[in-house]
Design a binder for these strands. Structure first.
Lengths: 336, 336
DNA sequence: CTGAAAGCGCTTACAG
DNA sequence: CTGAAAGCGCTTACAG
């Protein structure tokens, strides 16, 4: 260890760089070490350190799709909470594809300090069987021992159904995501259930990846048929897909919201500037990231991951729930 | 080493898991080891392995802003190229803030196999002085020993100026980014130079972070004044900022493109669905990511980072240049 | 309060 | 072709 030279010690340096000097190192030596560290520009080698400690200072974030701006906000929240002490490693898969346990297991060889898993499927968790501290995000409807931070996505879906019924719609189509994660099942089923209660007919119009282009294509193919059957609104599982529908509707000369209402989930920043503005279920992504980061920190400290100051969400068992809300814009509401 | 038991060897396992068996391990033993590995579900510990080898299998991607969807495409391209063998660690900073060398240096303790640095500033590179294989992305105008993959962003800026002049504009405003990276200087200066040649007046209207909201606010404050001075177009350094201008213009009742034309840079997916569609300089993000990944692979193999099959770009020294193009949409072009 | 020693899990010359 | 040994850069009991 280079720094050992500059001072007059050996393992003492380790105590100092790890802040474990409490009653174990003289103030004198602390000063010497600190000076040497500064002079040499020494940075503790993460590899050696991690190997000795048994775990790295990496936190792995597993998510189906970083290309979604929604997810960027989740990342920002996580970073804000854990950024000081841990490096964030993203396990990314291609747009909309669910990560495979094998992909993640390779990363587990890095001995991460913790795991953050966004929008997991039950199968994924079962196969992964990770032993490191883990917090789930947007995992509504998933049974697991790990604490989780979820949205009340079902509540948002119900608000959406109520809004459409109130606007006089009687038959709507639902465009699902192919991702196959629970969050999308919950969106769809909660919407359908509430719609049923309100005598609002719901027709499944298939599923696409979370992508403007494929949603546009899907809509283009389905619209003549849907239109003929009296469908007056398309509810999309994500805002991104809704953009595709808006785009294609414009090409096809379908007036929005006059002839067709369109909605999404997520409330991405672009939903305010789209043409027209998109009515959508707002999900507090950054807040979710923050809380999940905080719980993970807790868990890694040996806590239960539950003391996370509960930022306005409700709590039930290991699951923290964040409220969602409905943002009504021009895509469902005519007039200025 | 657990696997050692199952077979009848010790370091032989290492040779097998590293695929270095060429004339050094009997087929018999290879089979034994492989079976043991399979049975125990053994995965080589990355920490021990990396420490022994002197470097990890992590590639660090440094970027000013992952929340920009543009960047998601860059990531996708990088992953496609290096995903098999390396883990991608993102060094992320908060929206639009340039990463500090100190942030990255902490990650360097992980002994990354390579570095990918997007939109760097000269100061950043000078202070970082990283010794690991490095490839720069979108680093037009930066002098460095590292190979780079750039866009011909100046060319795109010139096309944009020409288009606006052709549409009859005589005075335009330029909304810059506060990020302070070279790519934004190039966008601004190339545009201004070509505008000058075409007798198109350019007025700087300040700079904001790359964010819909702050750009909207900036525009709201500046518009009365700009309008009074005969400005008929706002050129934004990024599409994201242009969305903010579009949004605020709608609120203020400014007709687009009738009373005001708006443009951006990047060609994000949302620029096709915005209201109206956004005229913008298209930058091939995914392709840039792919090529940069390929060059880094090369560099890590001891090559010069230059053999990367040059996908349509031009080459000059260590810099590979990708073409950009102008996509004209409704925000500058009246009529159906 | 301090230093010598063992050990984290691997890889790589080096004898055999 | 194979195994014993040293070593990667650190941390953590353990004597002193």
């Amino acid at each position: 260890m280079v720094a050992a030279r500059a001072g007059v010690s050996a393992a003492t340096v380790s105590l100092v760089t790890n802040g474990k000097t409490a009653g174990r190192v003289s103030t004198e030596n602390i000063a010497k070490v600190e000076q040497a560290v500064a002079e040499l520009g020494y940075v503790v080698d993460g590899l050696g350190s991690s190997l000795a400690k048994g775990r790295s200072n990496i936190v792995i974030l597993v998510a189906p799709d970083v290309s979604n701006p929604f997810f960027a906000n989740v990342i920002a929240g996580v970073r804000q909470e854990i950024g000081k002490d841990f490096a964030l490693l993203l396990s990314v898969t291609d747009a909309g594809r669910t990560p495979e346990p094998a992909d993640v297991r390779r990363l587990l060889a890095l001995r991460p300090a913790g795991l953050l898993i966004d929008a997991p499927s039950a199968r994924f968790l079962a196969e992964l069987r990770a032993t490191e501290p883990t917090v789930l995000l947007d995992a509504a409807g998933i049974a697991s021992d790990s604490p989780s931070v979820n949205f009340d996505i079902a509540g948002g879906a119900r608000l959406l159904a109520a809004h459409l019924a109130e606007q006089g719609h009687r038959n709507v189509a639902y465009l699902d995501s192919t991702t196959g994660t629970e969050t999308f099942r919950v969106r769809r089923e909660a919407f359908a259930a509430e719609a049923g209660r309100l005598s609002l007919g719901v027709e499944e119009m298939g599923a696409t990846t979370i992508d403007v282009g494929t949603a546009a294509t899907e809509f283009a193919g389905a619209w003549p048929e849907l239109s003929a059957r009296g469908i007056t609104a398309v509810v999309c599982a994500t805002d991104t897909q809704a953009y595709g529908v808006l785009q294609e509707a414009r090409v096809a000369g379908v007036e929005i919201p006059g002839s067709l209402a369109v909605t999404g989930f997520d409330d991405l920043p672009y939903s305010e500037t789209s043409n027209p503005g998109l009515t959508t279920v707002h999900l507090p992504a950054r807040e979710m990231g923050r809380l999940a980061g905080r719980r993970l920190l807790d868990l890694m400290d040996g806590g239960a991951g539950l003391s996370a100051g509960n930022g306005g969400g409700g709590e039930s068992g290991g699951a923290l729930m964040l409220e969602s809300s409905l943002v009504v814009r021009g895509s469902t509401l005519a007039g200025p």
